[in-house]
């Protein structure tokens, strides 16, 4: 097990207790990560947690978006520019970018779930992925918690149909209120491939709605989460039935987990 030191080169507050950090290796060559993969991020003396890669910019700066929830995530959020964090990875499966070529794609994100989708979205809005169309449904608790809000105009002007919905609006909010699934169900959008990431309940309801609308469960992809200590299949914690999510996930086709998540406590 080797932890590589990374220096924080940028820190942007993107929401309440939520930051996007840019990291470059202190000495080693930059690593690359496929959209949807995660790194184990370590703060000296505190702990280590799995965090999805939310961006790779300027030829190798790895971006992660983290919300302070527990001790380790709070320490990572507190890291300042020039601080050193540890990382190892990338680990896990990726969003299947080959599946979007020539297809109509819908991406549904709930809360921080937009972060693991961002590399895939940028691949699509930049034209590299070669999809036919992209619909992006973003759900957030409140307008202040919409991630990457400053990027949405660019995504729209690149041709994506971007819709944002919040659980609770404010006086300045003129968009829809409710879940991303509810927004989807009011639309008559047709899609061949779907990428979904958010809290498990959100992904279940979204995936079920997508399948009800006629999509194949093999073409709906979700990013599942369980407790994870090692990221390399040795600690046994990220089991979801026959899956070990650090190895077989986090990104899996809905058909692989639709039965598993029906049973609570798996």
């Amino acid at each position: 097990m080797q932890i590589v030191p990374y220096r924080v080169v940028s820190r942007v507050v993107v929401g309440p207790a939520t930051v996007t950090l840019g990291l470059v290796p202190v000495a080693q060559a930059c690593v690359t990560a496929a959209p949807g993969q995660f790194m184990m991020v370590w703060c000296f003396g505190i702990g280590e947690i799995p965090i999805s890669v939310s961006g790779i910019v300027n030829g190798g700066v790895i971006e992660i978006t983290v919300r302070a929830v527990g001790a380790t995530s709070a320490a990572i959020v507190d890291a300042g520019v020039a601080d050193v964090l540890g990382m190892r990875g990338p680990y896990g499966t990726a969003w299947p970018m080959g599946a979007v070529v020539g297809r109509d794609v819908i991406v549904m994100a709930g809360g921080l779930g937009l972060a693991p989708l961002r590399l895939a979205i940028e691949s699509m809005v930049s034209g590299r992925a070669g999809q036919r169309s992209l619909t992006l449904l973003i759900g957030a608790r409140e307008p202040a918690q919409v991630l990457y809000a400053e990027q949405l105009p660019a995504w729209r002007s690149a041709g994506a149909d971007v819709r944002v919905t919040v659980d609770v609006g404010d006086s300045a909010w003129h968009g829809p209120v409710g879940t991303a699934t509810a927004v989807f169900e009011r639309m008559s959008v047709r899609a061949d491939v779907a990428f979904v990431c958010g809290p498990e309940m959100m992904m279940v309801s979204a995936a079920q709605a997508l399948v009800r609308a006629g999509m194949s469960p093999a073409q709906v992809f979700v990013s599942m989460e369980r407790n994870m200590h090692c990221g390399i299949g040795h600690c046994g914690r990220c089991q979801l039935g026959p899956l070990m999510l650090c190895r077989d996930g986090a990104v899996v086709p809905w058909e692989m987990v639709s039965e598993l998540v029906q049973v609570s406590g798996r």
């Binding site: 280590e48 200590h229 600690c235």
Partner: peptide, 26 residues
Amino acid sequence: CFCSSFSDHTSLDNDEAFRTQEWASC
């Protein structure tokens, strides 16, 4: 049974960190 915990500990001067793997249980 192979399930385990990985946990970090630090020296008193906080300059050295140790990671241990310890048997855990589901």
